[in-house]
Design a protein around this nucleic acid. Sequence first.
RNA 1: GGAUGUGUAGCUCAGCUUGGUUAGAGCAUUUGCCUGACAAGCAAAAGGUCAGAGGUUCAAAUCCUCUCACAUCCACCA
Length: 904
Amino acid sequence: MKELPKIYEPQKVESEIYARWEASGFFQPEAGQHLADNPDTRETYCNILPPPNANGELHIGHASGYTVMDIFGRYNRMNGKKTLLLPGKDHAGIQTQVVFEKKLQTELGITRQELGRQEFYKKTYAFCLDRANYMRSQEKKIGISADWSREKFTLDPDVLSSALQTFVKMHEDGLIYKGKRIINWCPRCGTALSDVEVLHKDTPGKLYLIKYPLENSDSTQGGLKEFITVATTRPETMLGDTAIAVSPKDERFKTLVGKNAILPLQNTIIPIIADHRIDLAFGTGAVKITPAHDPLDWEIGRDHNLAEIQIIDEKALITEFGGKYAGMTTHEAREAVVKDLEKLNLLEKIEDLAHSVSICERCKTTIEPLTSKQWFIDVQTLKQKAITAIENGEIEIFPNNFKKILIDWFGNMRDWCISRQIWWGPQFPVWYRPKADQPRAGCTDDDMEMYVGLTPPEGAGWVQDENTFDTWFTSGQWVHTTLQAHGDDFKTFYPTDMMITGRDLLFFWASKMIMMSLYATGKVPFKNLFFTGLVLDKEGHKFSKSRGNGIDPLTMIDKFGADALRMSLIMDSAPGQDSRLYEEKIETFRNFANKLWNISRYCLTQEGFELVEEISNEDLKTESDSWIIRKLDENIFEINKLFERKQIAVAADILKTFTWNDFADWYLEINKIEKNQKVLGYVLDKLLRLWHPFMPFITEQIWTLAQQEKMLMISSWPKTLIWNENNEVNPNKENSQWNEVTIRGYNVIESNLKPMITALRNIRAENKIESNKKIRIVINGNINAVQEIEKTNQAEIIMSLRTGVEFISYNQPEAGLKNMLKRTVGTYTLLVDLTGAIDTEKETAKAEKEIANLENFIAGLSGRLSNQEFVSKAPTQVINQQKETLTKKQAELAELKKHLASLT
RNA sequence: GGAUGUGUAGCUCAGCUUGGUUAGAGCAUUUGCCUGACAAGCAAAAGGUCAGAGGUUCAAAUCCUCUCACAUCCACCA
């Protein structure tokens, strides 16, 4: 037997273990046929891993997600399923472009424009591959059992062509259109953004009240308004106003609707219109309409046939239509416009107003709404199909309440703008050339021939559309495109079983995957959709670079081990629920790993110890053997149930309690007195298997030290001996035998031995009996029961188990016992000889407190049992159980009262 | 404005789907221990009207309604 160090040192073994797993080939689903009786009909389990953005490194959120994915993956693999966890990386269009541009700027001092589009694309590609390599090494450190031979990148030609085919098909089906609409424009990134890529930030601002003179108004006469006052937060946009709108219900302006006003500064005539979308309670009730630069104005403009005048360009500068303000930034223009209005005495007042400003999700620049020609997906039918699939339960969502959120969101989803004007990303598979009779230069779209297809059409002069795809267009197809790229994988694994992603990607990604895969394949991409919460710091803040509160997963792995990090990420958290992470928390799981290590260290150093796969009734020699086997069985049963419900945190929690509080604290200690290597070997064998999905490294290491030939990662998941899936003892004979054999020992340990020992320890501690002082005890009870203690070797355990008992006598008449402390334990009375060391006052107080406690409890219980309604309506099982408890507690109470009397 | 989540021990959180044991864990605290694997440990203890109010029920931390507090998301913001 190899010498085991006192402390488990993950740093020394983890990378070697991972290398062994990888070399074994068992990360690949094709391997491991031996796990099933019939390899050809093996059930499958597939989880396409969410591809992290290939532009940086892993953060703690990735580590958290990967841990959950790997736990389910390993669990299913051990359950004999043909298991595939397919890894990959995302090119992450805008985000990567922003990151890489910054890098270019700081390292080389150049812009992407200076580099040129082609060169920029090439360099970014290389950058992504480099980052992907680094990130892959990080992912391995977390222990993820993914099939690296199938790893994919969203821009891999095979994956990409599947995704682009979907575009072509959608175009043929009329689900894609190119149109001039108002979109979110990021002036820094130089691209359109979809609604979800825009953040809203509450900012203090100003509301400007501007007077627009009425056309032909008579300024000298009363009765008629001379001006109409509008309210705006963006005065500079008035340069592009083409109307003023009021609510049709607004009595104040009724007479003005249909008349015209004069747009100050531009001196153009604009109509006053009525529209139901105007809130008469806000501002002055009259709104200036700038169709080219505001989403609502755009809609109103479209419905009233208003002209769109673009006065802000794609660099957020005022255009030639802005007259003398042309060339200014929007900020400069605002100041100038306000100053000029003041001079004209047209600025009524400026009020403070809190409102939210739209900013670019990636670079935080203020968004300019612009009208622009972009590609859109018509989502009407797609989203309906997604909603139907979710409602029909084709996708089960964890936690369940996210189902409603997702359905509601789909309901309000607007057409999806999929074109971006960035350079990093796949270009549209669309080609143009001027119609034959058109001059080459100065063509508009209408003068062009357009062709949609994966490869350029025959003939000369075709130029590819310069737009690139929204990242979510390709990543939204990740599930089916990755599988389609490899042999029969699509046929074998689709629809996949599981998708695990952060709840922050609900709208961005989860929704797109469901729509896109449903369209492309006719089936849902996954049967289960599991959301993890966000990982927060100790104060409940998000981790962020600016806050500097990040916890680097690699540093933590280095310090505490991958298993400890994994445990700390999944414990104490429910699906979709945020959780907090901090070093002390990881440390407690490092400590637990060490506990498991030392448990194994004890077992492995026992004479003739080995891991035992199967056990029979005859191997149970003592009550404690029966107890631990039954307890283990209960735990396996519960854990299986919890895995089905995706409650892995609870599963790990009860397993931890069993491992530490039952197996280590009690069984191992008893085992030192009553050796039974077979049971020891059986329980440790099961523990290692059960812990493997959660803590793969340490369990595999111990497994190896126990000289197992096969690897733990492909060993089979433990089965219960006693219970069936209905939480009943299986009627089959073997199971009921196990039930009979174990139940007595279970009761003996749980209700007699453990409480008796605890009571003794308690008495010693409370009475401050020195640790080396031996005590004598008397155990009273009915004759049979007392004989039982002797027969089942409990006496020896009591005397040996750090209770300092040197002599036990049985059934002594209490009258003759002076100075004895008394405790009622189960059906026994325990008397402890303290030879005058009793602190009577303290003991009296304790007894009184305990009596009060018991009386209270008994009152409640007997009240319930004498309640006719309870007796007639509650299930008999519950009634019997409570009757039993009542009898027990009444006996205890009587004993306690006697004890109290003897004290005073 | 709409939605969702959270509120349980000093702190961080499980448990609630499916109501039934005197409500659990870790950290922190008090006390005693280097006891045969583990001081990253062992043992004993203290600490909670399960946010508040009402309801359903024989029975509520758990189901329903309302209120309060906090958080997040979505929409609007002229």
